[in-house]
């Protein structure tokens, strides 16, 4: 049984027996894997009780030869707990969303340095970014993961021909992004979006310092959600948390997004302190 050592991020765990866990991870060396961690549910185990979602660490595991048997975790040495995510709901929601996204997009047993970087840099930025930058940080990580899977939407030129987009920035979800005047006419799936949202998203992908308000952020979500649904064939379960505002639990569930939330695009003229950005792409 070959033994592997790799940095890994825990995505999900399920209890397998009184003492064991099955753990979904995204790893730097091998992409998405799942392993069984025997004894991990005991208080004293070699896993230090650290096999929990959103914890990053060094995983040592045995690779089973047969395809239908689980790999066996030997050790997990936590290197980053991302505790900041566990102290603040908006950060936590965005963290679990990234975990679900990579679980869906990430290829099994195939290393993808871009995905690993977008994921881990994204989580670190979610821990450290100011409150009003959380969505920008999330979008950047999200687009990074899409790019790593070869699915990045075309945002500044026509997805079909590369010409400049029509002034209203029509978008085709199956067509892969914004369209020029001509292709907007011929693509039945073309639909109107907010040009501000598309431009803001393009600026985020470029790595510009961007400040966008809740209105534009919601419009960007309105763009990304159907895009992901199209490629994944289903909606991500944790998407619903992303638009959730603090609310008194005693009241019935209310859909937010009323006129109270000022929509405003601001490609800031004086740049904000930039979020950590090691994974920024050209």
């Amino acid at each position: 049984m070959p033994i592997h050592t790799t940095q890994a991020l825990v995505l999900r765990t399920i209890e397998y027996s009184e003492t064991s866990l099955i753990v979904w991870l995204y790893t730097q060396e091998l992409g998405r894997i799942h392993v069984i961690a025997k004894g991990a549910r005991r208080t004293r185990s070699t896993f230090e009780g650290a096999l929990e979602p959103l914890v990053e660490g060094e995983l040592v595991f045995y690779r089973k030869k047969k395809a239908d048997t689980l790999d066996i975790a030997k050790e997990f040495d936590p290197t980053n707990y991302h505790r900041g995510l566990r102290r603040d709901l908006p950060r936590l929601y965005r963290g679990v969303y990234l975990a679900e996204l990579i679980n869906e997009l990430g290829e099994e047993n195939a290393p993808n340095p871009k995905a690993w970087s977008a994921l881990t840099v994204g989580l670190n930025n979610l821990v450290h970014a100011p409150d009003n930058q959380l969505d920008v940080v999330l979008f950047r990580a999200e687009l990074g993961l899409l790019e790593s899977a070869g699915l990045q939407p075309s945002l500044s030129q026509c997805a079909a021909c590369g010409a400049p987009p029509a002034p209203t920035y029509p978008v085709s979800i199956p067509g892969g992004g914004v369209l020029c005047e001509e292709h907007a006419r011929s693509d039945p799936a073309a639909r109107q979006t907010s040009p501000g949202a598309v431009k803001t998203l393009a600026a985020i992908v470029r790595g510009d310092a961007v400040q966008s308000g809740p209105g534009v952020n919601n419009q960007i979500r309105d763009l990304l959600d159907p895009f992901l649904r199209h490629h994944l064939g289903k909606a991500l379960r944790t998407t619903r948390y992303l638009r959730r505002r603090a609310r008194p639990v005693a009241r019935p569930r209310v859909v937010t997004g009323g006129p109270g939330e000022a929509p405003d695009l601001a490609l800031s003229s004086d740049p904000l302190p930039r979020v950590h950005d090691a994974a920024r792409r050209r």
Binding site: L11, R12, P53, L92, Y93, V96, A99, E100, R237, T238, Y241, V249, R253
Partner: peptide, 8 residues
């Protein structure tokens, strides 16, 4: 959040 058990 991951398995879909909500506060409600």
């Amino acid at each position: 959040l991951i398995e879909g058990v909500d506060p409600d």
